[in-house]
Nucleic acid binder design. Sequence first.
DNA 1: GTTGGCACTCAGTCGTGACGAGTGCCAGAC
DNA 2: GTCTGGCACTCGTCACGACTGAGTGCCAAC
Lengths: 344, 344
Amino acid sequence: MQEDRRLAVLRAIVEDYVATEEPVGSKALVERHGLGVSPATVRNDMAVLEDEGYITQPHTSAGRVPTDKGYRLFVDRLSTVKPMSSAEKRAIASFLDGAVDLDDVVTRSVRLLSQLTRQVAVVQYPTLSRSTVRHVELVALAPTKLLVVLILSTGRVEQRLVELPAELTEDALAELRSRVNQAATGEVIADAVRRLREAVPEAPGPGPDRDDGVTRAVVETLADAMEDHRSDARVAVGGAANLARYGDSFDSAVRPLLEALEEHVVLLRLLGEATVGGTVTVRIGAEGPYEQLSSTSVVATGYGPRDEALATLGIVGPTRMDYPGTMSAVRAVARYVSRILDEG
Amino acid sequence: MQEDRRLAVLRAIVEDYVATEEPVGSKALVERHGLGVSPATVRNDMAVLEDEGYITQPHTSAGRVPTDKGYRLFVDRLSTVKPMSSAEKRAIASFLDGAVDLDDVVTRSVRLLSQLTRQVAVVQYPTLSRSTVRHVELVALAPTKLLVVLILSTGRVEQRLVELPAELTEDALAELRSRVNQAATGEVIADAVRRLREAVPEAPGPGPDRDDGVTRAVVETLADAMEDHRSDARVAVGGAANLARYGDSFDSAVRPLLEALEEHVVLLRLLGEATVGGTVTVRIGAEGPYEQLSSTSVVATGYGPRDEALATLGIVGPTRMDYPGTMSAVRAVARYVSRILDEG
DNA sequence: GTTGGCACTCAGTCGTGACGAGTGCCAGAC
DNA sequence: GTCTGGCACTCGTCACGACTGAGTGCCAAC
C-alpha cells in the first residue's frame, strides 16, 4: 500500500525534524530510515503529503517540515508509546515519595516533569470543587476578630480573617464552631456552601445569646473562601530555563509564553479540561486558545485520587517536540502523583 | 576643573549607553549633551577614563561602554535621585491598598515592581525571625492525628500534621493547647522555640493522663515549623517576560538568570542582606556572588514595619539599566509596603 | 589646557560567484 | 499502475573582497 508508506514517510519526517531541528530532505530520509525505496519515490509521496497539508517547505529547494496537521496525525495514529524505563520509573517514585505535604508534592512534580521532558512544566494545585471539608476551626484573635481556618480533605488549608459586628463569648464561639462543623464536615465544597447557608441560621435573640449578625459574617466568609478558591485555583510553574533552548524566534515565541506563565488564569485555560484514566491531551499550535502561542504545544492530563480528576498537570513546549516521550512522561508523573494523593 | 568635566563625560556616557544600547562616541556625546567643549577634548577625557578602568571599548574604532567600575562610580557619586511623580506615587498606593492579606501584598508588590522598572522583580516573604507568635491551634483530625496550626503576627499561617504516639482525649487536648499558647503566644520565634522546650514539660504520668510522648511530638513539630521557615524563607518572582528585552547574549545571560529565578536559595543570596531606612543596595555585575550572573545587577532594599527589616525586595536586570529610576522605584515600593505592614 | 587636522583601524554591509542540498518532472523499466 | 534514474532548476548559504564610515589616537598650533 502506498498509503502505508506515505504515513511511514510522514512519521520519519516528524522524527527526523524533531531530532535535528532542520528541514528534512528525501535523500537523508531514505538513508536514515530503511524505507526500501528510492529518494524519487519518497519525493512523490512528499508532494502528496504537502498537497494534503501535512508538511510544508520553508522555501523552495529546502526540505520539508511538519505542519500542525502533520503533528496531529502523527500523535493520533503514528506514534508508538515510548514506555518509561524501569530506572526512570524508580526515579519518579523515589523523587515523589520524599514529599512531606501537598505543597511539596506539587513543587516536586513540577521539578520532576520539567527535568524529564526538558520543557516548561505546569502543575495545577488540586481543585477544591471535588474535595470535601475535613474541619473548620474558629480562632478568636481579639474580641471582634476571628480567624476562620478551613481544612480540606486534600490537605489544603485556607484561612480568612473576619471582623465581627459584635463581640463573641468563648461559649458562643464553641457553639458556633460545633454548628458549623456539623453542617460542613465531610461535605463536598458545593454542598458545604449550601448546607452552611441553610442549616446554620442566626441564633435566636434577644438576650445574652443574641447573634447580631456574627453567624452570618462567619458563614459568608467561609462560603467566600470556598467559592473563591474553587475558581482561581493556583498553579506551579517550573523549568522556564528550558525556554532558552528555543534558540531562534525569540520575541515571537518565548516572550508571549513567558507572559502566559505568569498569568495563572491563562495557564489554566491553556492546560484545558482535566482528562482521566491515562488519557493525555495534546494541543498542537493553533489548536490552543491563544493566537500568540501558535507555535507552542501543550501536553496535559488530569490527576487525582481514584481517577477523580482533581486537577491538571502537563508541559508547554514548542510544537517541534518529542511527543511520544513527553506524553509518557506526563502520564507517568500523573499516575504517581495520583497514587500519592490516594494514600495521603 | 578637568576632573569635574571627566565625571560629567562619564555620566553622559552611562546615560547615553543605557538609553541607546550602543557604544557612544565622542562626537555624539558633545552633540547630545551640552558639554561646551570639542570632541577632541572629550576624546582625551575618555582616554583617561579608560586608563582608570571606568569605560572600555568593545573593539578599536568603536565607541565606549561603561565597565562595572564605571557604573559603580555613577551610582555612588554621579546619579541624581529621580523622584517618583505624584501620579506614580498615587498608582503605587492604590495598587497596594487593594491587598486583602499578606500573600496578596507580596503578589501585588512583585507585579508592581516589575511593571514600574520593566525588570524581573523579586520579593521575599516577610521572614519569621522577627515576627511573633499570635496563636497556636491544635485540631484533632483523628484519634492519633493532630493538625498543628501556627499563626504569626505578620499574618502568616503555617500548618503541620502530627502523627501522635498515643491517643489524646478532648480534655487533654484542650489542656495542651492552653499550655502551648501560654508559653508561645506573644513571643518572638526564637524565644518561642526555647520557651516551648523549657516550659512545656511532659505531663506527669502514670494514670489516665499519661503523656506517652504526645507533648514532645507536638512541641517538636511546632519548633520544627518555626525554625524551618525561618531559614528557607519564600520569595515571589514576577516580570520574567521582561527578560525578552535582553535581545542579544541569550545563552550567556538569560539562561543562568532563568535558572536562578527558580532556585529560591540562590535568589535570596542574590538579594543579599536587608538594609533599612531608605538605603537601596546596588550590586553591579561581578560584585554579586554568582559568576554566571556577571552581566546582571541587583537593586534591592529591606522592608518591614517600623524600619525593622523583615525581608528584602528588589529587582534583577542587566548591568546596563536605568539605575536612578530603578532605585527610586524600589525605594518607593519598599516604603509603601512597609507602611501597609505597619497598619496591618 | 584646548582644538582642529589627519592618518589609521576595523566592524558592518553589500555584491558576486561557487556550491550544494533539495525539488519537480519526465521517460523508461518492472 | 508503480517505481526509478536522470536532469534541469531553484535558492539559501558560505566565502571572498571591496567599500564605507564611525570612531580613535596623536600631533602641532593656538
